[in-house]
Design a protein around this nucleic acid. Structure first.
Lengths: 249, 249
DNA sequence: AACCGCTGGTTCACACAGTAAACCAATGAG
DNA sequence: CTCATTGGTTTACTGTGTGAACCAGCGGTT
């Protein structure tokens, strides 16, 4: 087996990130690599302060906060979030609900920023969560700004349902996308988590390419159909404001 | 020069994170490595979806959102933030100001989470920001929970002033630390950014070790000395609640 | 034009870094 | 007391990553 050491290193980081706390043998097995290799990679990564030992047993491996600090600054992550914060705050005040900013990573969106509602009952999604394109307000909004070819490849993947109300039929999703394009914003009732409704709009860079999306999320009891129009207009406007500040991909 | 390839890979990631957008030659010069090595590292990292080309010139290198997604989950970053969110929200409601959660990374703290105030005038600090221990409410609070030896090594470093009001004299900082220990919370008026006052308290794990700190931050015009007592008690209580949920380092 | 200093990217032979298999010591379950 | 784990170490070999030298393209200056 010929592997670049840096490839294994990255795999180690990602595996630890996902499975932590995790022990050496477990990790080596999961990576299908020898323990010696795995351990040496672990120790060098520890020297670089990306990993550390700890956890229940004291010998398990964990990701450090250094990894976080490095990741947050960053391309779209840094500049787009910076540009988005102001408009997102304003949208939070206007809607009084939770505001999400999502950014694409491969075939999913990643929750990049969240402005919380003061309400006790609220939608909750951890930062960094991977959000499937077909199952969320942000995702559907993002798709609606993609080219037909991109949409097709996105929908050609297996579309796992997240809740009982998740759209999984490509044809229905396509219909929904054209609806979104006409309407200007997406509507997702319980598709990502039960009882949560969200309205989303795509953020376009100055050249028109989709670079993320914003959404308003809250309990379906508060975000009722009669408020869709007003709230949808707000998200749409917010997405426009953010995109207009953002120069390019 | 003999270097591990994974070490250079990590250095590349960190350099790109810090300097992006950045070109090949620039990067190689900054890393003191050959362009060949640098480029191959860049391309493998791009294959792993951690980096991508783009930016103004189209050939500059950027960090992807994938790096962020990997970093956020993670050790202290994940579990502690999860445990802290509830109490932080409550503290936000009680104080009506911005709440910060900071976690140690080497010799600084990293801003891990932020709950914003609805006020238009508010303190702002980007997630992932590196916060010097001696110049912030969170930092001083964290120091106050460290052992004397740890404090000494921390204060033996060069203490750069951030504002004109930053404490840089080790003796004065030590005095402040004992004051914090008696008082139960830290007070920082304009030490990190002008016009911002913050009150912080250390978060201790069940075994008593400091693992982070929380703070209330806002304009000095709103966080006035007559409110220090009440607000300080709130932060302190919040830090205790968070720590009591958190098992161990 | 020719020259310059730069850029991103490529090629190649050699050394050394990274690999896997075998091996230890310690722990916990049966 | 076995047996199967665990984390960690040692080894000799091999193939990966290394840096120097090399292209080609670009924008100014002369």
């Amino acid at each position: 087996m010929s592997t670049h050491s840096v490839v294994t290193a990255i795999k180690v980081i990602e595996a630890v990130s996902e499975l932590q706390p995790i022990g050496l043998s477990d990790l080596a097995r999961h990576l299908d690599a020898s323990k010696a290799t795995t351990l040496r990679t672990l120790t060098t990564l520890a020297e670089m302060r990306w990993l550390q030992q700890g956890g229940p047993t004291g010998t398990d491996w964990l990701l450090t906060s250094h990894a976080y600090a490095v990741g947050v600054r960053g391309g779209a992550m840094g500049t787009l979030r910076e540009a988005a914060l102001g408009p997102m705050h304003q949208l939070q005040l206007e809607s009084t609900e939770t505001i999400h900013l999502a950014i694409p990573d491969g075939e999913v969106l990643i929750l990049a920023e969240r402005i919380d509602t003061p309400h006790a009952l609220r939608a909750f999604l951890a930062l960094g969560s991977r959000i499937p394109l077909h199952a969320s307000g942000t995702g559907l909004a993002f798709l609606s700004a993609c080219s037909d070819a991109e949409i097709e490849t996105a929908l050609s993947r297996t579309l796992d349902p997240v809740t009982t109300q998740t759209l999984t039929n490509p044809a229905k999703i396509l219909a929904e996308i054209t609806a979104i394009r006409n309407r200007g914003y997406s509507i997702n009732v319980g598709g990502l988590s039960d009882g949560i409704t969200s309205l989303g709009a795509p953020i376009r860079s100055l050249n028109g390419r989709p670079i993320g999306s914003v959404s308003i999320s809250g309990p379906s009891s508060r975000i009722t159909p009669d408020r869709f129009g007003a709230m949808g207009a707000l998200v749409q406007e917010t997405a426009l404001r953010i995109g207009s500040q953002y120069p390019d991909l």
